[in-house]
Each structure stands twice: as C-alpha cells, then as structure tokens.
C-alpha cells in the first residue's frame, strides 16, 4: 500500500516536473525570440509559433501515413515487395470476408438506429416541460462521456449468461425468462446475432449525440413554416414527414455520416466484449490484431489503408454538407 502511494506520488511529481519544464522552455523561447527586431521579427515569430506543430504533424501523421501505404505493398515483415497481394487477401480471405460483412452491417445498422432514436427523442422531448426536457437530455447524453471500455463492461454485465435454472444476474436474460423464453442462448456467443448485441452499445452511446444535434436543428426551424403547414391542414405524421424532416435534412445527413465515421473506426467495444472472437471482428479491430498480435505489417497496413479509403468520402461529404448548412443560414 505505502509503496503504491510512493510510486504514485513520484509519478505525479515527475509529470508535474515535465509540464513545468515544457512551459518554462516555451516561455524562455518566447522571451529570446521576442528580442528579435526589425526584419527578422516576423519570420522568427512564424517559426517559433508554427514550427512545433508542423514537426508534430509531419512526424506523427504525414510520414507515418505514407509509410503505412508503403508497408501495405510489402510482406509481413516489410522486406519483400508483394504488390497488391495484401489487398487481395483482405477481399478474398474467408475470415476477412466475415470481418468486412460485419463492418458493413455496423455501418448500416448503427447510424440508422442511433439517428432514429435521437430524432424521436428530439421531437418528443421538445414538447415536455423545460426542466424534464433537460433532465431527459442529460441522462440520454451521459453515455457519450463514458469510455467505450466502461460502456462495454456495463453492457457485458447486462448480457451475462447463466444456466436458466440458476439465479440470474444478467438483466437481459432475466427479462426474457420472465417473458417466457425458456432456453435463451448465451448472447455473446450466439453468431451472428452477437454482432447485434455489440451494436446496441454503440447505439446507446451515439443516440445522445444525434438527439442533441437534431434537437437544435428542430428548434431552429422558423415558426412561420410550421404555422403555414398547419394552416394547410398538415398534422402529426404528415407535418413531421413533409415539413420537419425535409427542413432538417442537411443536419440529419451530417449526423448519420458522423456516426458512420465513428463506427468505421470502432475498436474498443469489440476488443473489450469479445476480442473479435465468435465472428464479431470488424475492420479496425482486425487491423490492430493483424499488426500487433499477428505481427503482420503487410496485412495490418492494408486494412488501415482500406479504413482510410472508407473514411475519406464520408468526411468530404460531411464537410460539404456543413458548409451548405452554414451558407443557408
């Protein structure tokens, strides 16, 4: 106990020291560079202000990304050039086919469900009293603050399987037993449905995000638009589908693509829940396993590149929609 405390204190002390040194160095550099006058004043400032960021971006993102592209054309230990063999493997290997199918399922199902729940909550909670609305929104949004690891443990407990004859501790199994399902399966081993149980966690996290963004968009619809529609006799579902949804279409698309991007990179949930076993692996998890567990740089890098190629169009589309939204308002 006492040595844990000592080592903790020393770690925190070292961290404080590093932080202090970091800012002290910055201040000294500022002071020294500030003494420059005349013509060199401007170039010196530019180098001091931008230099660290550029070095970090080059060393941390640009050069490594290029290297990963190169690795994806080489064999497992990055020595032998093998052309597009790694990509061929990624799209033809039977195990990989399962991974890609899972990834596509994730990309399609999770954003749609999160957005549907988020939209419903945004529409309905808008009509509650101010106080209940904010409590509701806080509680739905809360999972967003929790780590995926924490969320996974929360849900693994919900999915805990125990022989039906024994006292239950997993909520899901207890509920289906109460409802009369005599012999429920072990949820996380139940291929292919276990993928769906993992997706529930992501939906649980992302619904709050969808709700907050969509709620703001709905509140921003001009009152006269809705009024005119109601005067024309639009009510309930018609008002919702013909007026509200078209008015917030841009935001809806941004929400869906943003969640899609997050889903493409999903790693923590699969890692913590199943480790990718029982046919639940997805692209980002497989990329980690291939690179750091199987030590196959070629396979892992090819998967990273595929991930990148999947994300790029989504982000570009996203940025374009956001720009359009801004220009409209």
């Amino acid at each position: 106990m006492s040595d844990i405390l000592t080592s903790s204190m020393s770690k925190l002390g070292q961290m404080s020291l590093v932080v202090v040194v970091f800012f002290a160095v910055l201040l000294i550099v500022f002071f020294a560079a500030g003494r420059a006058t005349g013509r060199i004043q401007r170039p010196v400032a530019i180098v001091v202000f931008l230099g660290p960021a550029i070095v970090l971006l080059l060393a941390g993102l640009l050069i490594p990304a290029i290297r990963t592209f190169v690795y994806s054309l080489y064999g497992a230990s990055s020595i032998r050039y093998i052309g597009l063999k790694n990509y061929e493997w990624a799209f033809t290997d039977p195990g990989m086919r399962g991974v890609l199918i899972n990834t596509v399922l994730w990309i399609v199902i999770t954003p749609i469900l999160s957005t549907a729940f988020g939209l419903t909550l945004a529409l309905l909670s808008d009509r509650m009293r101010k106080r209940s609305e904010s409590v509701t929104k806080s509680l739905i949004f809360m999972p967003m603050a929790i780590s995926f690891v924490g969320a996974s443990i929360i849900w693994k407990f919900v999915y805990q399987y125990i022989e039906p004859s024994q006292p239950q501790i997993g909520l899901l199994e207890q509920v289906v037993l109460w409802l009369g399902w005599k012999n429920p399966p072990n949820w996380l081993l139940w291929t292919p449905w276990n993928n769906f149980f993992l997706m529930v966690i992501m939906v649980w996290v992302q619904t709050g995000f969808a709700m907050v963004v969509l709620s703001a968009a709905i509140k921003a619809i001009p009152a006269d638009v809705i009024e005119a529609a109601s005067l024309d006799g639009a009510t309930g579902w018609k008002l919702f589908s013909r007026v509200t949804v078209p008015m917030i279409r841009g935001t809806l698309v941004v929400v869906i693509t943003t969640i899609m991007i997050a889903v493409l990179k999903i790693f923590d949930i699969v890692r913590t829940m199943t480790g990718g076993n029982f046919n639940t692996s997805v692209l980002a998890n497989e990329m980690y396993s291939q690179t750091f567990v199987q030590a196959d740089n070629g396979h892992g890098s090819a998967l990273a590149v595929i991930l990148f190629v999947g994300v790029v169009p989504l982000i570009f589309y996203n940025v374009r929609m956001l720009r359009k939204e801004r220009a409209l308002r």
Binding site: D126, V213, A216, I226, L239
Partner: peptide, 19 residues
C-alpha cells in the same frame, strides 16, 4: 454547430406540440 435563427412569433415546436 447550428446557430439557432431567431424564432419570429412563437417557436415552431408549439405547432408540433399540439399535433
């Protein structure tokens, strides 16, 4: 992300609220 435009008369949602 989405700046709320000033609602002119009553908030749009009141109409939905009724429906």
């Amino acid at each position: 992300v989405i700046p709320a435009s000033a609602p002119s008369r009553q908030p749009a949602v009141t109409a939905i609220r009724r429906t």
